[in-house]
Design a protein around this nucleic acid. Structure first.
Lengths: 346, 346
DNA sequence: ATTTGGCACTCCCTGCGGAAGAGTGCCAGC
DNA sequence: GCTGGCACTCTTCCGCAGGGAGTGCCAAAT
């Protein structure tokens, strides 16, 4: 009986799965004798060898050298996670512990740090969580403070009493009452609306009704535009990077350095996380699949987290390609849910 | 002719210096023949050996094993930096380049990041710079914004238009005009004063004149007290940590991990930097001198930076014990000066 | 009193060879 | 289609010897 989709006999699939399980467990190439015992289905090593030979031909496994066992290839892992993997949901006890831990945090930033810490703590790998996007936060109010001749401090308060500061440059000095007028105007107009919506409305209004606007309104809108302009809140929090040093597949100083450089640079990692944000559900990059050389020996398991059905960011785990995917996936999944929930009713 | 202070013959001092120079240069234990050539003063290896023997007895050098050369001990380095070292100031060309780089940065945070980057870039080790202390910043103004029933956002503007947000809890709801009154009162009273002074005055006033205060004043003072309370701005910015991976004395994964954990934790490093902040001028911890195990094979060279004669923080370099102190010291020194200057006329 | 050459000694590093172990591929027989 | 047997390949792990670097000590020279 063969699986038509993959054309890979059931038995071979079982064996691939066993081999990966075993390899993930102790990191040694798996030989036919070991696998025979592991499988427990009363086959001789010779039989196993035949099938292994097929699996190797298909590119799912390979052997480091003639007389070593077999090791899964990237494609092997890919097939494994795509069609062989069975994950059982995380036990409710662990989930409760995580929920508790998160419930103690007050600010989004703290929550994100905590989530990242949880991920790294539980998986013993590196945890990464992007800061929640402000793109869909609700505009609550804005206030302006004149600091000097041409500098105005804008304070933007969004949905959950998140506060952001922006420094604006103005052409001329604006009086306190002018600023007050401007903020009153904006607050009346936009309170409760979505930030991206606010921005869109703003741009439209400035185009369409420019002529009929009085100068105060125009000033107000220009300032609001400046405030919303630089809303690229792309950043992430990482925890447990040093956990990665423990894995012997990464103990090469050179690889380690490239990896840590990338973590510090943030750019490439952000780019990857960005790709994950719109994939509904778990996303996995295995080894070179990421397209980044420093992650060649690593895998990344991510899940987007959302509040009110709106995707706010992504949580993830970075570890060696040889990781226990079936253990990591539910952890990442649960963390994403819990973080979303914690951000919500806060 | 002997140096009375140290009781170490001139020639021995010269030799120690040469040995350290050489060892720093290529990392190999230095033997008597090598040192003879290095010294260039026409002494036979046998003579050198005799003196080396003395230096070893004094604890300045040691040999990893019988038939290797000699290596400086921590005490050797200590003697070297304390009494043997001659540093020439950094050439003006490099200084100009650094000044230029710093001049492009606008905010203190950017300046600090840039300084840290410069340190690591030039020395090829890790650069670390603490954020400028706000303790002696000038109070410029404070504004309050009611966010909800019992939560008030305080915006504190200090000297150079630095802005800090604080979230306050209040017993009862305060109206916008009440908040306005409070901030007016505080701004009139404290504008232009030193933050620590403000705090001190605040506490004194609240003790002495409590009975004669009206409730508005009291509320204002309570809030101001909350704002200034949590002014512990202890943090640092680090750059080039990964440079440390290149040194073979640190290529031990375990040591590396402890080191990077400490960098992430920040606590211990901050504690060390704190010790340096009050030492007028360059401070150096060599190897175990720091008292922290993860820094056993490392040295730290620091210098405080100040604005208007007030010490604001410290810049430093962390690298292997085997570092070119005479090269690093002027770099750290110059960076401290330049950072102070850049923070000043900004 | 210092400096020096000589010499024996110690220790590390390298390369070599052989034995053990693990695993494979192939083949013939069931 | 499965299995046992067998020859073969590779890695890993010693043990061992030789070369090299450096030391300490001593007796002779300056």
């Amino acid at each position: 009986m063969t699986d038509k989709k993959t054309d890979l006999p059931d038995r071979a699939q079982l064996m691939l799965r066993s081999l990966i399980d075993r390899y993930v467990r102790d990191g040694q190439p798996v030989g036919s004798r070991t696998l025979a015992r592991e499988l427990g289905m009363d086959l001789s090593p010779a039989t196993i060898r035949n099938v292994m030979s097929d699996l190797e031909a298909l590119g799912f496994i390979s052997s480091p050298h003639t007389s070593a066992g077999r090791v899964p290839t990237v494609q092997g892992y890919r097939f494994f996670v795509d069609t062989l993997l069975t994950v059982q949901p995380l036990d409710s006890h662990s989930i409760e512990k995580m929920r508790l831990e998160l419930s103690l945090k007050a600010t989004p930033k703290n929550l994100v740090e905590s989530a990242s810490g949880l991920l790294s703590g539980i998986t013993h790998m590196a945890g990464v969580v992007t800061l929640p996007s402000h793109a869909h936060a609700l505009f609550k109010r804005v206030e302006f403070l004149a600091l000097s001749e041409s500098r105005v401090l804008a304070i933007l308060v969004t949905g959950e009493d998140e506060v952001q500061n922006r420094m604006l440059k103005t052409d001329k000095k604006l009086s306190a009452s002018e600023l007050q007028q401007a903020s009153n105007y904006l607050n009346a107009m936009f309170a409760g609306k979505d930030l991206t919506e606010v921005r869109a409305t703003l741009l439209r209004e400035m185009q369409e009704t420019r002529s009929t606007m009085n100068s105060m309104m125009l000033t107000a809108m220009r300032m609001a535009d400046q405030v919303l302009e630089s809303n690229q809140d792309e950043d992430y929090v990482m925890a447990g990077q040093t956990n990665l040093m423990e894995f012997q597949e990464l103990c090469d100083i050179d690889k380690l350095r490239k990896l840590f450089d990338a973590f510090n640079q943030k750019r490439d990692i952000l780019h990857l996380l960005d790709q994950c944000i719109h994939s509904q559900g778990i996303q996995i990059f295995i080894g070179e699949e990421s397209g980044y050389q420093m992650l060649d020996e690593c895998s990344m398991v991510t899940a987007p987290y959302s509040v009110d059905g709106k995707v706010m960011g992504v949580v993830g785990v970075i570890g060696p390609t040889r990781m226990a995917y079936n253990r990591v996936i539910p952890i990442v999944d649960a963390t994403a849910r819990l973080l979303g929930a914690a951000l919500n009713h806060k």
